[in-house]
């Protein structure tokens, strides 16, 4: 009990690792059982329930729910939002990560903190910020109305809110990686006479591409699935400003269970595709 700190013997560490791998059968099996039952209970079961409810009245009801004009409009709007926000945030994320990891400047830590802000602010507040800025009674409200520009309760507001929410995903993936990478390779390229763009495309991008793709994937998943912030700025006009997650809620409250879960199944399918792509990326990264 009165352990004296001793220099760690590497051979002992290996031995300990082997012991850990040779835990008694019951320990191993119960750990596996806990993990599997947890995953089936909290991930597979709800997902299965979504699919079950979506098809509870048959395939025909499922398809007719999905092919309704309002559902198609919601899918369109969700795709449009992702198509605008994901590229913008990719460019921003790379730029920000580059600035933070390659240069020293005043306010760098402030910038890093600000990038994280959307993670720490509740999505509802994120939505309200835009209402306070661009709403009719907000700061820019009068000017916007005088010029007949609609932001809140229209597509631009939804895109802005999503942009804000998904802001950190790409940068957050890149910053630790680029910090770890250091600047030697780029310095070498520069000293060999490569220009800034060439260095970026030939040296930086190949090094960060998997992390970048991973960040884009997460960003896209959130852009399509965001509820809170979008709900505040949407105005909930059917067929016009409802994204898929909002459309799920509308249908649920309309007592249209098949419609709600059919839309939810699309979101679930998107999530599954994201997960598969994510695992593939991780596998590729691991094999590098």
């Amino acid at each position: 009990m009165n352990a004296i700190p001793q220099p760690i013997n590497p051979a002992k560490l290996v031995a300990r690792q082997q012991v850990a791998l040779q835990d008694a059968d019951w320990v191993r099996w119960s750990l596996i059982a806990i993990a599997v039952s947890f995953i089936s209970l909290f991930i597979c079961l709800p997902l299965g329930l979504v699919i079950f409810q979506a098809f509870s009245k048959g395939v025909v009801a499922y398809w007719s729910a999905l092919s309704q004009a309002d559902t198609l409009a919601a899918i369109n709007l969700t795709l449009l939002t992702a198509l605008v926000t994901v590229p913008l945030n990719t460019v921003f994320g790379v730029t920000a990560a580059w600035a933070i990891t390659r240069f020293d400047f005043k306010g760098k830590s402030l910038l890093t903190t600000l990038i994280d802000l959307p993670f720490s602010v509740s999505p509802v507040i994120s939505g309200l910020i835009f209402v306070l800025l661009f709403g009719a009674e907000g700061w820019f409200g009068e000017w916007l109305m005088a010029h007949d520009v609609k932001i809140i309760f229209a597509v631009p507001g939804i895109i802005l809110a999503t942009l804000f929410i998904t802001f950190p995903f790409v940068a957050r993936q890149l910053i630790p990686l680029m910090q770890e990478m250091g600047t030697q390779e780029e310095e070498a390229a520069l000293s060999l006479g490569a220009g800034g763009w060439k260095t970026f495309w030939a040296v930086t991008v190949p090094n960060i591409k998997w992390a970048l793709l991973y960040g884009v994937l997460l960003c896209n998943a959130r852009a399509m699935g965001e509820f809170g912030a979008v709900s505040v700025v949407s105005g909930h006009i059917r067929g016009l400003t409802n994204t898929l997650p909002l459309h799920v809620e509308v249908n649920y409250n309309d007592y249209n269970i098949v419609g709600a879960f059919a839309s939810a199944s699309i979101l679930a399918a998107l999530a599954v595709v994201t997960l598969i792509l994510k695992s593939a990326l991780e596998w590729k990264q691991g094999n590098r």
């Binding site: 916007l144 809140i152 309760f153």
Partner: peptide
């Protein structure tokens, strides 16, 4: 509230 804030 939404109409006051600009829902047309």
């Amino acid at each position: 509230r939404a109409v006051l804030e600009g829902l047309e």
